[in-house]
Amino acid sequence: EPLWIRPDAPSRCTWQLGRPASESPHHHTAPAKSPKILPDILKKIGDTPMVRINKIGKKFGLKCELLAKCEFFNAGGSVKDRISLRMIEDAERDGTLKPGDTIIEPTSGNTGIGLALAAAVRGYRCIIVMPEKMSSEKVDVLRALGAEIVRTPTNARFDSPESHVGVAWRLKNEIPNSHILDQYRNASNPLAHYDTTADEILQQCDGKLDMLVASVGTGGTITGIARKLKEKCPGCRIIGVDPEGSILAEPEELNQTEQTTYEVEGIGYDFIPTVLDRTVVDKWFKSNDEEAFTFARMLIAQEGLLCGGSAGSTVAVAVKAAQELQEGQRCVVILPDSVRNYMTKFLSDRWMLQKGFLKEEDLTEKKPWWWHLRVQELGLSAPLTVLPTITCGHTIEILREKGFDQAPVVDEAGVILGMVTLGNMLSSLLAGKVQPSDQVGKVIYKQFKQIRLTDTLGRLSHILEMDHFALVVHEQIQYHSTGKSSQRQMVFGVVTAIDLLNFVAAQERDQK
Rank of each mutant, 00 (worst) to 15 (best):
C307K: 00
A470F: 06
L426P: 02
E475W: 12
W369F: 08
V333F: 08
R340I: 05
I396D: 12
T385E: 07
S485F: 15
F346V: 02
Q507P: 14
A316E: 10
L464F: 08
K402T: 15
H394A: 01
Q450R: 03
G483H: 14
R488P: 09
Q476D: 10
G483Q: 14
K402A: 06
Q406A: 07
A322R: 03
T482P: 13
D467Y: 02
L380G: 10
F285W: 03
V317Q: 07
N255K: 04
L380S: 10
E291S: 13
L358P: 09
M466I: 15
L358H: 09
L373C: 08
I398M: 14
I390H: 07
Q476S: 07
L248M: 06
L358A: 10
L417S: 15
T454Y: 09
I444G: 15
T294Q: 11
I451M: 13
S461V: 14
T314H: 11
N341C: 00
Q511M: 11
A311R: 03
P273L: 06
R350H: 12
K283G: 05
Q476A: 09
I390D: 09
T261C: 09
E508W: 09
V472I: 02
L500N: 00
G423H: 05
R278N: 06
V333M: 13
R340F: 01
L363Q: 07
K355D: 02
L417F: 15
L358R: 10
T456A: 15
R400N: 12
L399H: 01
D455Q: 08
V443M: 11
A311K: 06
P383G: 08
T391A: 08
S427H: 09
L299V: 12
W371S: 09
F404T: 07
K402F: 09
K512A: 12
D510N: 14
V434Q: 08
G418E: 03
K345S: 04
T314P: 11
L363S: 09
V473I: 03
W371E: 09
A301Y: 15
T496F: 15
V491S: 02
D277N: 15
K512F: 08
Y479M: 13
A316P: 14
G423K: 12
I334Q: 02
P408K: 05
S313T: 12
R297H: 01
G432I: 15
G379F: 11
D438P: 09
T395A: 15
I444Y: 13
M419V: 15
G356A: 06
A407Q: 11
K449Y: 14
R459H: 12
I238L: 04
W371H: 09
T496P: 07
L299D: 04
A505V: 15
G393W: 11
R488H: 14
A382I: 11
I267Y: 06
T391P: 12
V241Y: 05
L363A: 04
G414Q: 11
R488D: 05
G379E: 10
K366I: 12
R400D: 10
N255G: 06
Q302V: 09
V332D: 00
Q507W: 14
A413K: 12
V495H: 07
K367Q: 15
L373M: 07
F503H: 11
D242K: 02
V241E: 07
D455W: 08
T456D: 15
E324N: 12
Q329P: 03
D438W: 09
A407Y: 09
I444V: 14
Q476V: 08
L417C: 09
T385Q: 06
V317E: 09
L422A: 11
Q489A: 12
K402N: 15
F346T: 03
R459M: 13
G423Y: 02
T364P: 10
I416R: 08
G441Q: 12
V339E: 06
P273R: 06
D405S: 07
L248Y: 01
L276N: 01
E291T: 09
A497G: 11
Q435E: 15
N255C: 07
L325P: 00
E244N: 09
I247G: 08
S461R: 05
T391R: 02
P243Q: 01
G268I: 01
E253V: 15
A296H: 02
V491H: 08
G328I: 07
T385D: 04
A470N: 06
A249W: 04
Q447E: 15
I239E: 05
E263D: 15
F285L: 15
D411N: 12
K367E: 15
S381C: 13
P273A: 08
Q511C: 11
S461Q: 09
V472D: 03
L399P: 02
Q489F: 14
K512N: 13
H480M: 11
F492L: 14
E303Q: 10
L460W: 05
Q478N: 15
G379N: 10
K449S: 08
V415M: 06
V333R: 04
E290V: 13
A431W: 08
K367N: 15
T385R: 13
S428D: 11
E327D: 13
K366N: 13
L384Y: 05
L399Q: 06
M298D: 10
G328W: 04
A321N: 01
D337M: 03
T257R: 13
H474T: 09
Y445F: 11
G414A: 02
D282F: 15
K367P: 11
I463N: 04
C307H: 05
K484T: 03
R509Y: 09
Q259N: 14
R330I: 08
S246D: 03
V434E: 09
E465H: 06
M352K: 07
P408R: 02
L325I: 05
A301M: 12
Q326N: 13
R278M: 05
F346D: 05
E265F: 00
G266Y: 00
D438A: 03
L306H: 04
L430K: 13
K449V: 05
V415A: 11
L373A: 11
C392A: 14
Q256V: 14
E265C: 00
D282R: 13
F293C: 02
M425Q: 12
Y269I: 01
G266A: 02
S427G: 14
I451A: 12
G304F: 01
E475L: 14
L399S: 01
T456S: 09
N255M: 04
Q511G: 12
G268Q: 00
T421H: 12
S310T: 08
I300Q: 04
E265L: 02
L429F: 14
D455G: 12
I300R: 01
N288S: 11
I300C: 07
E290A: 07
T482C: 10
D349E: 14
K512T: 12
A318E: 01
L378E: 05
Q450A: 10
E508F: 15
L501C: 06
M466D: 12
L335D: 01
G458L: 06
I444A: 13
R297V: 01
W351Q: 01
E465F: 05
Y262S: 00
D405Y: 08
A318S: 14
A321G: 15
A321T: 12
T294M: 01
G356E: 08
S461W: 08
K345W: 00
V315I: 13
S246I: 00
S310W: 00
C307A: 06
T261A: 04
Q376C: 12
E377I: 09
L422Q: 04
L299N: 04
V440D: 06
C331T: 00
G312C: 03
P336E: 05
Q329M: 14
G393A: 15
P336I: 07
K345Q: 06
L299A: 05
R330N: 07
Y342F: 04
E412C: 15
K359D: 03
E412T: 15
D411I: 12
Q489E: 12
E377Y: 02
V332C: 14
